[in-house]
Design a binder for these strands. Structure first.
Length: 402
DNA sequence: TCTGGGGTCCTAGGACCC
DNA sequence: TCTGGGGTCCTAGGACCC
């Protein structure tokens, strides 16, 4: 039987910002106040990214608008995010855990799985160990975590979500029926809002209902997903803790525009800059992309996209941009656009280049050299040192890109 | 009134080939 | 005039997660 731990930082962004502010000499610990980490309203990104426990008690939820949060909690304090600092705190936590084992899967900036199976004979009882790391993280770094202990990843994750903060919970196979079955079906990992609604229409309210539901009826509604859903509801999950580096399947950047845009021509400078950014990220990882995808969101919040598969994978910002322009030309822009993005997919490490008869080898080599030089300059002097001519002197961007 | 940005995985339909 | 089906690849969109 495997033993898996899931470690989850309580109110990660808010806790980490609280520590940062205290270090700067701020007089309050925002964890104890009606506080949130929020986006910037002037940039049309005014949503709640994280909330304190007091704010949560007033009904503030993640991803709602700050406007709506304020209505629930008039004396709400809004603090900006600080991703660089968050990454530091995150790394520090994972470093502590790696003192005990390498078998750690980093799931997101504030969560990971730890396979305890092999090291149990060294460190003993897993619940005692869970308390030990929870206390160690708090003493050395100053923030609290929840730890879930179970026989697989799914149940460990469910367990860490039980009561917060600063708690250890178990959800062993033998406890699934008593601890997990009574929960609302929407609480199950992988069941979102839409699916939960659909399930309720056929009378499934709890995870237990789903676990015991007639599989034939379920299949009619959810096809192949029915079996997987029901296995999850029964707490079955054989996925391993993947502790080697998993390579990204794709990379993308998107940006909400300061104002809605009505013409394709106006979108082009943004595509240019986005192409540069995704290109830099791609080249940093020594990768090439086959698929370029342009994503738009209109003023009714409908996302749509078009993509193109290249004959030869590329890592050239210039080629990404040109392809993006071609894609944009094929897209309908019936409504004003509030967001534009570029995604690169089907990444590969090798540059297999079949020369098409239309391509000029010298031009490609020049392009590669140019990208390399630009990357080096940007690394040395910062991203702002070089601006593509058409972006110069235009304050188009509402925010700095990653 | 206002609604982010980064991802992953799955499905459905059409094109195309044999 | 009548006319299959299987497999694969590609694209667009949707659901979900943090």
């Amino acid at each position: 039987m495997r033993i898996i731990l899931h470690i989850d930082v309580n109110n990660a962004f808010l806790s980490w910002s609280a520590i940062y502010l205290l270090k700067q000499g701020y007089k309050y610990d925002i964890r104890n106040r009606y506080a949130i980490i929020g986006g910037d309203k002037s940039k049309r990104s005014g949503i709640v990214l994280a909330k304190s426990t007091p704010a949560k008690k007033r009904g503030v939820v993640t991803a709602e608008t700050i406007y709506s949060a304020r209505k629930k909690c008039p004396n709400l304090e809004v603090y900006p995010s600080n991703y660089q600092w968050y990454q530091k705190m995150s790394n520090a936590m994972f470093k502590i855990l790696k003192n005990y084992t390498d078998e750690i899967e980093i799931y997101s900036i504030d969560e990971c799985f730890l396979d305890y199976t092999k090291i149990k004979k060294i460190y003993g009882d897993e619940v005692k160990f869970a308390h030990k790391i929870k206390d160690e993280i708090y003493k050395t770094l100053g923030f609290t975590v929840n730890v879930g202990v179970a026989n697989n990843k799914l149940c460990a994750k469910m367990a860490s979500d039980f009561e917060k903060p600063f708690k250890v919970h178990t959800l062993y196979d033998s406890e699934i029926k008593t601890k997990m079955y009574p929960l609302d079906v929407g609480e199950l990992f992988g069941i979102g809002k839409k699916t939960a609604e659909k399930l309720r229409t056929i009378g499934i309210k709890t995870i237990g209902d789903l676990a015991n539901f007639d599989i034939n009826r379920l299949t009619k509604l959810f096809k192949n997903q029915a079996v997987i859903m029901q296995e999850k509801a029964r707490g079955i999950d054989n996925s391993p803790v993947i502790y080697w580096n998993i390579e990204a399947k794709g990379i993308g950047n998107e940006i909400t525009l300061k104002n809605d845009i009505y013409t394709k021509e106006e979108l082009k400078p943004f595509l240019l800059s986005l192409s540069e950014h995704v290109g830099i990220r791609l080249r940093k990882e020594n990768k090439y992309a086959y698929v370029i995808c342009v994503v738009l969101k209109d003023n009714l919040f409908r996302r749509f996209s078009h993509q193109k598969k290249l004959l030869n994978p590329t890592n050239s910002s210039n080629e990404i941009y040109k392809t993006a322009i071609n894609i944009l030309d094929e897209m309908n822009m019936d409504n004003p656009i509030r967001l534009v993005g570029i995604r690169l997919d089907k990444l590969t490490t090798s540059e297999v280049r079949q020369m098409s008869i239309f391509e000029n080898e010298n031009r490609i080599i020049e392009d590669t050299k140019l990208n390399k030089t630009l990357d080096e300059l940007k690394d040395k002097y910062g991203t702002n040192v070089i601006k593509v001519a058409s972006l110069k002197d235009k304050n188009l961007f509402k925010k700095k890109l990653k």
